[in-house]
Nucleic acid binder design. Sequence first.
DNA 1: CCCGTGCCGTGACGCTTGTCACAGAGCGGT
DNA 2: ACCGCTCTGTGACAAGCGTCACGGCACGGG
Lengths: 232, 232
Amino acid sequence: MPSLVAVLQQIPIFAELEQRVVAQLAARCVPRTVGEGFTLFRAGERCAGLYVVLEGRVRVYRSSPDGREQTVAVEGAGRPVAELPLFDGGPYPASAVTMTPSQLVFLPRGEFEHAFRADPDVAAAVVRSLGGRLRHLVQLLETVAFRDVAARLAMLLADYADQTGAAQGDGVAFELDRTQEELAAEIGTARESVSRALKQLTTRGLIRNRAGNRFLVAPSEQLRAWARTGGM
Amino acid sequence: MPSLVAVLQQIPIFAELEQRVVAQLAARCVPRTVGEGFTLFRAGERCAGLYVVLEGRVRVYRSSPDGREQTVAVEGAGRPVAELPLFDGGPYPASAVTMTPSQLVFLPRGEFEHAFRADPDVAAAVVRSLGGRLRHLVQLLETVAFRDVAARLAMLLADYADQTGAAQGDGVAFELDRTQEELAAEIGTARESVSRALKQLTTRGLIRNRAGNRFLVAPSEQLRAWARTGGM
DNA sequence: CCCGTGCCGTGACGCTTGTCACAGAGCGGT
DNA sequence: ACCGCTCTGTGACAAGCGTCACGGCACGGG
């Protein structure tokens, strides 16, 4: 395993810091290795510090009293989790749980705040990170408010194709390592609706092929275009 | 009209700056007075600078191709609009239009960025502001994803009661200067559904009295509690 | 005074989607 | 090989809500 300093320097938020400062932060970090389904924190709890994902996948979500869940973000290696409440001192706005066995580091709040105030580059990086979340949320809100389930799913597949897909013929191939239950939470619907929407997208030719987790889909622009026009 | 410097110093984002710095910013501000229904910018345009509302009300929204709208925020006096895209250089994620005749100041991007990097207090204020938006959005997303129209409306009324309400008996009285159309856009539904939801809340006793814009509603905690449990 | 315009209430209808119920498939453990 | 578990597909049904259509009301201007 490489030194913690080297690892932190790979991470966008810390990338622009001087090595000396990173080393100081690294000294205060608490590494954690946890299994699948481990809850990092729950919505409403007071915020103790920042998590950064080194390996694995963390799901950030809101849950309703009757058990349904809406996923707000899924964070992978190198991404910070819950950088928001560090500053205004408020509670976590959402809950977080690991989707896979994961390695994380935990950085206590005081340490991070110090770095934030000491270095404008850190501040800028934090603002960019928050900005990205905000953009993503506005986007998500729009699709949940306006589009039907099939369109939302098409959007999700388009994102996935862009992130992890490989061109194959005139389409994109990728592996979708999520259950339908998890997909449903991401687009704010029920598991059964995802199943039906997948069938619908397949008959429309937007999903060309599907075997287990292997997907072959139409180009992402085509998926998005279809979703934007409400389908047809 | 008071000097622009004095006005800017009232505004949270600039409140902590030294007077000299504020004066410098004020010199670069462009004041604008616009009527109702004036579009400040549209989603997707490149961001030129920051708006701050001095007087009036600005609605920030996303619109769907088929004409429906989801408002993301309503900003009043002293609030910044679109501070997000200033930093990552991306386009506006939403559109903005005035709901009333308004006075604004416009601060070109370069100026603001300079202040941001020069003063960690400004950076902290920006992060707090973004944080507030993010919290609000997560909240909004949850209600749109989980709750029915009546519950969303109850939430909205609770917010309104907290912001501008006056206790009256065991309830809260306030004036709601919005059309049902605007309410519908805020909670992501259709005008007619708002009308029906208002009736429903009235028969349930959560709205005690309603005459034109004057509302008398149950205490905000009661409204929120009812909304959270899905009603009944 | 009458008409146009904007806002609000309400009925009818159909589509989407959440829910319940159940069957089959894959898979790992014993 | 058998069981139990999770994941998936599918049918039936009801509720919520968006849409259309229409009528009433207030208000302001000619």
